[in-house]
């Protein structure tokens, strides 16, 4: 008989018996950050390789969503802060050991850049558009002139933005589920896949959708591969990793993860995309919707489950 009973006098609602401090605001933000990163990355990428005409939705129209997503994401982050009026303290210092610090700085740069990117295409998208103010017109021609280096900066920052959503979590050594180095790449791939799904959904051009779909299949398969790696790592891990593993293997996150994230959010849409590429008729909104749903669920599951796991002592 190896019985052990532990009673703690720590009666803090958000912390004991399980930590539950970060709620939907963080999950939503991680989703929208990855989504915006994905949209901006592919917009910049297709612009750089000179496919602006062929991929007009990805390069121009879909980028409308990016600043919108960032705005909602940033609002939910601000809403989550408990000392809201002091948020500007983030920008009084740069702390490289804190992903939240350099993430905040990245956001401070990429958010206006994403607005400028969309704005520089306004006349392309709406021929009658007029900025009505001399300086705005001058600024627009400046941006259009230097759009290529601009696209490179945007591409670089969008990778940082999407990776950061994963590294933010993986930096917490106290939460064994999060503290895995693969989480950064996993969130990057997942974020890019949701970004592609958005462009795919908005695109009215079949050729463009086929190209996006092919890239998306690659990203989803990579994501599945990384998820398998993640769980192999947990399975071969120490007691705390095994506890994280059990949450997903019979524990309270089994259905939400394997059914909603992996099956409905990854395997099902990737199958539909492959079928569609092979000539079967699939309603065009179904795969993107499932991918976006899966991506959102993935963030909710990871944020909630990660806070349950802890060091055992």
């Amino acid at each position: 008989m190896k019985e052990e009973l532990m009673v703690s006098g720590k009666h803090i609602a958000e912390i004991y018996p399980v930590l539950h401090l970060w709620h939907w605001e963080i999950s939503l933000y991680l989703f929208l950050g990855g989504l915006a990163g994905g949209i901006l990355f592919f917009a910049a990428y297709f612009f750089i390789i000179g496919k602006e005409k062929e991929m007009s939705t990805t390069v121009k129209w879909a980028t409308f969503i990016a600043p919108l997503a960032l705005m909602i994401g940033l609002s939910s982050l601000l809403y989550d802060l408990h000392h809201k009026l002091y948020f500007w303290r983030l920008f009084t210092t740069v702390r490289f050991t804190s992903p939240m610090s350099w993430g905040a700085w990245t956001l401070l740069i990429i958010f206006p850049l994403s607005i400028i990117w969309v704005a520089s295409f306004m006349k392309d998208m709406f021929p009658n558009w007029n900025w009505k103010w001399k300086y705005l017109n001058q600024f627009e021609s400046f941006v259009i002139k230097y759009r290529l280096p601009f696209a490179w900066i945007l591409m670089f920052l969008s990778i940082i933005l999407a990776v950061y959503t994963g590294i933010l979590l993986s930096a917490f050594n106290a939460r064994p589920l999060w503290n895995v180095s693969i989480l950064g790449p996993l969130f990057l791939v997942s974020g890019f896949s949701t970004g592609l799904a958005t462009s795919m959904w908005l695109s009215k051009n079949d050729a463009e959708r086929r190209i996006l779909s092919r890239i998306d299949i690659f990203f989803i398969l990579t994501e599945l591969f990384l998820i398998i790696h993640l769980f192999m790592g947990f399975m071969a891990g120490t007691a705390v990793k095994l506890e994280a593993f059990r949450l997903f293997m019979g524990g309270s996150f089994t259905i939400s993860f394997w059914i909603f994230v992996v099956l409905l959010g990854l395997i099902f849409p990737v199958t539909l995309e492959i079928l569609e590429l092979n000539g079967y008729h699939v309603p065009k909104w179904v795969p993107p919707l499932l991918i976006l749903f899966g991506g959102l669920m993935f963030r909710f599951v990871m944020v909630d489950a990660g806070q349950i796991t802890r060091f055992l002592y």
Partner: peptide, 20 residues
């Protein structure tokens, strides 16, 4: 006065010794 209440340190503490 420097704390923004983001909760990162609460998440980072293996001893759950911090609260908001």
């Amino acid at each position: 006065d420097d704390c923004i209440g983001c909760g990162a340190c609460v998440e980072a503490c293996p001893y759950d010794a911090r609260y908001i």
